[in-house]
Design a protein around this nucleic acid. Structure first.
Lengths: 308, 308
DNA sequence: AGATATCCATAACCATATCCTATCAAAAAT
DNA sequence: ATTTTTGATAGGATATGGTTATGGATATCT
């Protein structure tokens, strides 16, 4: 007989007998008949190929090795109990404090779509939003100051679990009078890295935008670096160059409407994949799952589900 | 359905499916048919009241909570594996280095009875014997420098497991000419603490001998204190007083025969209980068990089995 | 000492869980 | 449209874990 055949109940049996020092009482405690318990204890002993209990005298007595086995069995049971805890926690997710990090180029444009559904579905959640750069947010996630993070893939680090949420295409943002504002459909090959306006270092969007440019090597680092997409928007409006915007940052109506053109790419559009990130170890999985479901159910327009 | 009904095999199943991302392959790996595995996975999911796997697409995909469950399941399996290790270790006990501590008033008299059987039964054991006082030996046991200790009960400290081995009665050792050498049978009430010769402080035998004396309070501390039983033997032979000897230290034949009398007590003889002590946590239980069995099988004369 | 009580193991039997083979239904690939 | 892949389902054999009744060994009582 193999050890895999052991039931958690079997381990409870030997733990109970060890605790009670008495098969009869242990049987009552476990809610089974004494013969059933005896048989199961024998099964465990057979599985392990050893005697756990010394039944010679009136008192049941643990074998030396048996004591160790029982101790280990208790440990196994505690760890198995964690399984139920995990499952239980999943049943009341997003209740209480939840600290969510969102990258700065996403938060202001995505959260408006989520806040109302969140309030409706999880009224007793207390949401704390933290905006920042990917690295900083992941740091805070790692150290437990955040419960989950919304960021763009790829996420480095083995201690995190991620779930892709949606693909957010990039749009070209050009001054109204620019050549690229009129071409039938811009494509990435038309972009010149040295005409591109970029966010400051640390924004993942900056690197992603550079990746889109065909001749990355020619780019020189001395351009002005914007702090936010809104700054960037104004810089483009003032004619300093063009840039890439994630779809959610493309406004439906815009005060700068006359000055800017937001143009989708033709063919396979460049873009970024937004994912939810949480700690591998910990009990945020239930929350993550609920959040994933909610975001998927409330996908904003202009983004595509990541799971085809 | 209760979580206790889960088999370790069930946990292997979900771990395997999670690893393979494929029910069929997982089934082969687990050595069962695919329907059996499917059913068991469903059973686990039902037990926990949650979905572990997302079966929608071609790829099997872990639920967020499912990933946590599987991780925890793997932990449970590892801990369960320790159970087998413990049982396995028991099957080849006392092989390799074994460091045994023995109290000074026992070692020289007991070990001669054990060394030959040990060599015969466990030829590949390398025994290191350490003689000392109880406290020092227990310190070394606690810190891992010893694997087990033979000492007299009671043993204080929650981190140890003990097994009573035998009762060793005390004998009265008197000079040949002394009154007590001739009385029909000495009894503890006849002893006077201030006539008793004692070992130096730290020997448990010293305290036990004092406990035997009826009027403990009258005793004054200014007597000479012997370093070993052999010194004590000579002191008694020289007429300085009498003392108590543990049975094993009573010689069959003695060079000092003419000078000394070893007298058993009448009625319920005072004595000490010798036990084996080992660490609660650790894997010495198998060794302990073997040693216990061997000592019980080779009990010296003059001692009584501790388990009636 | 003999009777009694206690306690674990065994026996006989039953309900159910588990596993197998064969088959189905849905999705993906051709 | 057809084939392939893959997990779920169906039906039947077997193993497992449970029950009550009983036995045998050992302490306890009178």
């Amino acid at each position: 007989m193999d050890i895999s055949a052991l039931t958690l109940r079997n381990l409870e049996y030997i733990a109970s007998v060890a605790e009670q020092g008495h098969f009869g009482r242990a049987a009552v405690l476990c809610g089974v008949s004494q013969p059933a318990l005896s048989a199961q204890v024998q099964k465990v002993e057979e599985c392990l190929g050893m005697r756990i209990f010394e039944r010679s005298r009136r008192k049941i007595h643990l074998t030396a090795t048996g004591a160790e086995v029982v101790e280990q069995a208790r440990l196994v049971l505690r760890e198995a109990g964690r399984l139920v805890e995990i499952a239980e926690q999943r049943k009341r997710p997003l209740s209480g404090l939840f600290r969510l990090g969102v990258i700065a180029t996403l938060g202001p444009y995505l959260m408006p779509y989520l806040l109302k559904p969140l309030r409706e579905k999880h009224p007793d959640m207390e949401l704390v939003l933290v905006e920042g750069l990917t690295d900083s947010l992941l740091d805070q996630l790692h150290s437990g100051r955040l419960d989950a993070v919304l960021a763009a893939l790829p996420i480095k680090g083995n201690s995190f679990l991620t779930e892709e949420l949606f693909l957010e295409p990039f749009y070209l943002v050009v001054p109204a009078g620019h050549t690229l504002a009129k071409a039938p459909n811009p494509s990435p090959e038309m972009l010149a890295a040295d005409e591109m306006l970029l966010l400051e270092d640390g924004h993942c969007l900056r690197d992603q935008a550079l990746d889109v440019c065909p001749a990355e090597g020619t780019w020189q680092q001395n351009r002005y670096q914007a702090t936010s997409l809104e700054t960037l928007r104004h810089m483009v409006a003032s004619g300093a160059g063009y840039t890439l915007f994630p779809a959610l940052a493309v406004p439906g109506s815009d005060k700068l409407k006359g000055l800017l053109r937001y143009r989708p790419f033709n063919g396979k559009a460049p873009g970024r994949t937004i994912a939810l990130v949480w700690r591998r170890s910990g009990s945020a999985a239930g929350d993550a799952e609920a959040l994933i479901a909610l975001i998927r159910k409330n996908l904003p327009p202009k983004v595509k589900s990541a799971k085809p």
